[in-house]
Computed example of a mutant assay.
Amino acid sequence: MTISIKARIAVTTALVGSVAAGAAAADTMKIGITQNNVGVDSYQTTYEKAFIAAAQANPDIEAVVLDAGGDVARQIAQVEDLIQQQVDAIIIWPTNGEAVVPAVRKAHSAGIPVIVTNSNIAEQGFEFAASFSGPDNITQGARAAEIMCEKFTEMGIETEAQIVQISGQPGYTTAIERAKGFEDRLPEVCPDVTLVETQPGDWNREKSQKVMEAFLVKYDDIDGVYAGDDNMGVGALNAAKAAGRDGIIFVGATNFSVGYEAMERGEYWGSIYQSPVDDAEAALKTALDVLSGAEVPFLNYFDTPKITQENMDQFDKPVF
């Protein structure tokens, strides 16, 4: 839906307590976003750039762009700051799905619609949010389980394979949902495959490499690794390569460029294709739709298809 209001652009990257430079025209839609942790990986960095570009392209928007740096307390303070600025809508990429619920409730009480982006808040906060815009992370985990099972079946080891899982940041909704989707779906498609252990990699490649190094010492037989994103998956792959452990099937989620490149080399089997540009643009569009009074589903998912070595030629290399 096209918004008829016309006003100047004012996109501001700010810290808590800062105010957008210059007074916006009275009819400008002021939209604030507080992100999780822009510097932690290239997905979030690309998301921020895409969000700013989309806001700058719309003359109806003044955007206040904030980053919590992975700090829950800082994100809560940012939401409170946006409420004080009397923004028209708040987009939040939660640092922790449960801990931010009181802040979302406070914005709701102030009459400011909240759009949750990328990773949902805890269910008890759903009544205070206008919509969630992002990927269906449970489906991502389920599709990753299917990719792994299909490969094991092709290899003839579906009745005996053992796998390990490297999950994301503990307490983070995306990490919880991707693990749940995988763990629930795997026994449905490959009931005899054993998940021997799960450890968090915190979305960090170096930490995930160390987690995998420990797995390799502990387990003589590892047939597969499922990682909550390709950044962690490639960390695990690097550990296996350094240890000379060949033949392990690596499957991730959120296909990063490093994962795509590893797939091209034949070292990494599959992942789930997800665009941070689509993610950012969908969040902004959802906020605009809510402000225009359009009917918006609470769970506003965009599709994230399977990508493997067999079909990767159908997908562009990720830009992150």
Rank of each mutant, 00 (worst) to 15 (best):
I91S: 09
S119N: 08
A142M: 15
D71K: 14
P102V: 01
I91C: 04
Q140Y: 00
I76C: 10
N118I: 03
G125S: 04
N118E: 14
A122R: 05
N96E: 15
P102D: 12
R143W: 13
A77G: 12
G70A: 10
N118T: 11
A110Y: 13
I92W: 04
A142P: 09
V116S: 02
I83L: 12
A130C: 07
G97E: 01
P135T: 12
S109T: 15
I147F: 09
I147T: 07
G97D: 00
V87R: 05
A99H: 02
P113M: 14
G70M: 05
R74K: 15
V100G: 05
Q85L: 15
P102S: 11
E146S: 14
P102F: 12
A145E: 08
V101L: 00
A145P: 04
F128I: 03
K106V: 05
S133W: 04
D81C: 13
E127W: 07
Q85P: 10
E127H: 09
G70R: 00
L82F: 11
F128Q: 06
A142K: 14
A110K: 12
S109L: 15
V104H: 08
P135N: 08
A129W: 01
A122P: 04
T95A: 15
I83V: 13
A110V: 11
F132I: 01
A107D: 06
F132E: 01
L82A: 13
I138P: 03
I147M: 11
E123P: 06
P135V: 11
G125C: 02
H108L: 11
D71V: 00
S131T: 06
Q124T: 12
D81K: 09
L82V: 02
Q78F: 02
E98T: 14
A89G: 08
E123Q: 15
Q86N: 15
N118F: 04
I91K: 04
A110R: 04
A142T: 11
G134A: 00
G70D: 02
I76E: 09
A130N: 05
Q140D: 12
I92A: 13
V114K: 12
I83K: 11
A89P: 03
G141K: 02
D71M: 08
T95R: 04
A142E: 15
P102Q: 11
R143M: 14
D88K: 08
N137K: 00
R143F: 13
R143N: 15
T117E: 09
I121L: 07
A110F: 09
V114W: 07
I115P: 07
E80I: 11
D71I: 01
D71H: 12
F128P: 05
F132R: 00
P113D: 11
F132L: 02
F126R: 10
Q75S: 09
A89R: 06
V100M: 12
E127D: 08
F128T: 04
N96S: 12
I90G: 06
I76Y: 07
A122L: 04
F132K: 01
A142V: 10
A99C: 01
D88V: 05
S119Q: 05
S133E: 00
W93F: 13
Q86C: 14
A103R: 11
A107G: 08
F126C: 06
S131I: 00
I90T: 03
V72R: 03
A107P: 08
S109F: 10
G125A: 00
A145I: 14
Q75A: 03
I121M: 02
A142I: 11
S119K: 03
P102E: 09
T117K: 10
G134V: 00
